[in-house]
């Protein structure tokens, strides 16, 4: 009887402890998420009252060349960010995982862009990448007709590099701490058995850090889908839509043209993409991750 009363008190108090946060989540995240899915079925702009249109927005999206372009841009941007970020992070972590006087200073240097305000970081690159700025003129001296941000062929790749330089330090230190968690005895045993350094890396170190690799992969994919600020500051989605990702397309429709219904449909597409990716990756996990704690 007493324990029953205690459990009821715990339920009441637990609920009260969590309430302020849960209420905020409900009001500012969950309800808007339901609303955005609902709004995607309406025609709703700043001037017009909302009207129910069924799946008309989605049908329009399917025909919209700009939107179809932004799907491709988002795919290239995401794959590019993930591939470059994870490769560079793994290389840097392996390089920084040595015992050397002053190695901590090098780790901090690679990490420092992570704490740089993203707008400041983007503006620095915007100056450096002006048509007559030092980077383009430097490349022009090498005989290349370079205008990296204003050329639709190079703009997206340039943004990928800038974003990876900003963020890769974080994945680097995560990999570094995973590498340092691999017990040295196993590597030494393999070395004594005649394995080459590459074989040790490939067959012992990598499988041992595969849970971390997987987690970082997941977070980086979803992080890439969210990237907005450097794109907006550096190119605004241009030139000719070459850097308009889904989130930039949504922002333009919603807050430049104030087409709330149409923008909500883009948001819904992005939401289902994130959902699908998450589910897909959890299935992949079994195939890729060697062991789990």
């Amino acid at each position: 009887m007493a324990s029953h009363l205690l459990a009821r008190r715990e339920a009441r108090e637990g609920f009260l402890f969590a309430l302020p946060y849960l209420l905020g989540m409900l009001v500012f995240v969950l309800l808007p998420l339901v609303a955005v899915l609902g709004m995607s079925l309406t025609g709703w702009s700043l001037l017009d009252a909302p009207t129910f249109k069924g799946f008309a927005n989605y049908a329009k999206l399917a025909r919209d060349l700009e939107f179809r372009g932004s799907l491709g841009v988002t795919a290239i941007f995401t794959v590019g960010i993930v591939a470059l970020n994870l490769t560079v992070a793994l290389l840097l972590a392996s390089l920084l995982n040595v015992r050397l006087a002053g190695i901590a200073a090098f780790r901090s240097m690679v990490f420092s862009p992570v704490v740089m305000p993203i707008v400041a970081w983007s503006l620095i690159w915007k100056f450096l990448l002006q048509p007559q700025g030092p980077l383009n003129t430097g490349l022009q001296h090498l005989g290349l007709d370079a205008n990296l941000l204003l050329n639709p062929k190079t703009a997206l790749g340039t943004l990928i590099v800038i974003e990876v330089l900003k963020a890769v330090g974080l994945n680097t230190v995560i990999f570094l701490s995973a590498l340092q968690g691999v017990p040295p005895e196993q590597r030494e045993a393999a070395r004594l058995d005649g394995a080459s350094p590459w074989q040790v890396y490939r067959h012992i170190t990598l499988p041992m850090i595969s849970p971390t690799l997987f987690l970082v992969f997941l977070v980086t994919v979803i992080g890439a889908l969210k990237v907005f600020t450097p794109i907006w500051v550096l190119t605004g989605g241009g030139p000719a839509g070459a850097t308009t990702t889904l989130i930039v397309a949504m922002f333009k429709q919603g807050f430049t043209f104030f087409e709330f219904g149409y923008a909500s449909a883009i948001a819904a597409v992005l939401f289902f993409a994130v959902l699908l990716l998450t589910l897909l990756q959890w299935r992949l996990r079994k195939a890729l991750v060697f062991y789990e704690d």
């Binding site: 995240v29 808007p32 609303a35 919603g254 948001a267 998450t278």
Partner: peptide, 10 residues
């Protein structure tokens, strides 16, 4: 996980 930017419009 879900990008908060998605719900900016409502």
């Amino acid at each position: 996980m879900v990008p908060a930017e998605l719900v900016a419009i409502p």
